[in-house]
Nucleic acid binder design. Sequence first.
RNA 1: GCGGGCGUAACUCAGUUGGUAGAGUGCUAGCUUCCCAAGCUGGAUGUCGCCGGUUCGAGUCCGGUCGCCCGCUCCA
Length: 539
Amino acid sequence: MDMDKLVALCRRRGFLFQSSEIYGGLNGFWDYGPLGVELKRNIKDAWWRDMISGHNELVKPAGAPTTYEMVGLDASIIMHPQVWKCSGHFDLFCDMMVDCRETKHRYRYDQVRGRWAEYQGLKVFVTALGENEAQDIEQRAQKLFKLRAKEADKITWHGEIISLAKVEDLSKALAPEATEPGTLTAPREFNLMFKTIVGAMGGEEDAAFLRPETAQGIFVNFKNVCDSTRVRVPFGIAQVGKSFRNEITPRNFTFRSREFEQMEIEFFCHPTTSRKWYEYWRDRRMKWYTDLGLAGERLRLREHDKDELSHYSVGTADIEYAFPFLSAGEYGELEGIAHRGDFDLRSHMEGKLVKNAEGCLEVEMVDGADGKKVAKHRGSGRDLTYRDDLTNERFTPHVIEPSAGADRGTLAFLCEAYHEDQAPDDKGDMQTRTVMKFSPRIAPVKAAVFPLVKKDGMPEAAKEIYTALKKRFVTFYDEKGAVGRRYRRQDEAGTPYCITVDGQTLQDGTVTIRDRDSLEQWRIKSADVVEEIAKKVEG
RNA sequence: GCGGGCGUAACUCAGUUGGUAGAGUGCUAGCUUCCCAAGCUGGAUGUCGCCGGUUCGAGUCCGGUCGCCCGCUCCA
C-alpha cells in the first residue's frame, strides 16, 4: 500500500489535517476532520467499553487468573512538578546535550567523560564512551598526537577521568568519535517535556510540565480510588487522554506526534500473581486489535529481550504494526504491555528510584548541603501500600501497564482499511475502486441512505429511513447524481452499508442493502432497516 | 539537529530565456438515469507555502522562514 495515497485520502475526505495548515502547518501536530474524529472516537469508545464499562467483575474472563474490577479516571494534564521528578521523567527528559559538529552525534553533557592529556605543549581533554573508557582515552590520545604505542609514555596526563561537565573550555575537548578537538557545541537544554508556567504572574519557579504520559495521574490517585470505591486488588484503573512530548523528529504522518492521545490501564495485583496477570493482559490486548479487524500479518506481538527491558520491568511486550512507511521487516509500536513491579507506587512513596549494585531498587541519593546524603527527588511520604482486609496482609501492589496509543491505533486501522480493488462501472468496464474496509464497529459512518433517483417519492421514503437510522447511528443521506458515484463515495469513507430506495420500495416496502466489501445487495423491509444495521454493527 | 529532494486549485500535475496561471479528476446547478464514479449542458475555485530582496515587471532569480519526503541522529 502506498502511504502517499492514504495521506491524500485522509486529507481529501476529512480524516486528518495538518494542524494550523493555513499558517503553514506545525510540525508534529495534527487535526482530526469530520470522518477522522468519528473513527478515533469509535476506537476510544470500543476500548473503554471493552476494557472498563463493559467489564463484568462477577465473571472470570478466559485466561484471567481470577475475577477482577475495572474503574476509570480522568486526571489533569498538568500535575505537581514533583510527580515527574519521582517518576524519573524529569531527569531523563531535561538533560543538557552537546552536539558534535564533525560526526553529527549528540551526547548527554554529563555522561561524556574524559581526561586531560598533554603532548608538546598541546593540552586536550580526550573523551571516550563505553566500558573501556580508560583504555580508549589513551588510544585516542595517541592517535590524536600521532604517536606509536611504545611512545605512549610521552603523553602527560593531568588529573583523573572526569565528566565533560567539569570542563570549562569545550574547544579543547576531543569529542568521543571526532578526529580533532573543538567540534562540540555549547551544552544546550534538551526538553523532552513541554514546560509551562502556572499562574498569571508566574515565573521560572512556577514552572510545570504537560504530562508526557497519562499513567502518573493514575499512580498518584491510587490511594484516592482505593479509599473511595471499595475496589479490591486485583483491579485496574483506566484513563484516556492527551499527552505531550517534544519528539526530536516528528515524522511518519501521525505516528510520532508531539501531542498525542493515550489509552492506559494500570492494573494492580498481588506480587505473587503478577506474572500471570501480565500474560493475561498481553494476550487480551492483542486479541482486542485482531477482533477489531487488525488481523493480518502486519500485526504482531513481540516480547522484549531481557536486555531491552526498562530497569524496573520484569517483562514487557509490544503490540506492533508493520506500517507502510516503515522498511520491510520493521514494525512500529501500537501498545506496550509492561510488568512494572512496584516501581511506580514505591517511587511516589519514597522518591525517585534507581537500581543499586545488587540490582535492587533504592532511592537515588545525592550530596546534601551539609555533606549528608539526601534523596535526589523526595517522594510524597504517603503510604501507598495496600491492605487486604480478608487476609490482613499489607503489601505494595505490582502493576501491569497496557499502554496504547490512540492515534497510532487509529493510523494502523486506517492503513489496514485501505484497499484498491476492481469494480465494474455502468458499462461493465472494470474501474479501480478505493475502499476503506473498516470493521463496522469503528467505521465513521455506519450507513448511507439513497433514493435511487430523485423523483417518484423516493427521496421522501429515503428520508424517513434516514431519520430513523440517525437516532442510533452516524448515517449519511445523499440524493445527488448517479447512484454508482454515491456508492463509491461511501466506499472511500468506509461506510459498511448503503440503503437504497427504488421503485419496488413504493410497491412492497422493501429496500436494497448493499455490502461495502462484497458489493452484494439484498432486499429487506424498510421497517427492519434499523434493526438490520444494529445487528451488523453491534454484532 | 545535520545532509539531500520538494512546495502551483480539494486531488494529481503542466507552466519555455522573468511579461498579470492551465489541464485532468473532483466539487457544484440543471437535465438524464431503476443500481456501482468518466451521459448531456452550464458554473465556481488559486494572495503559485509564507516573508523579504533584485527588477519597469517574479510561479520563474536570490536570501530567510515554515512545512512535507528520504537518509543520519533521537525515540522514557
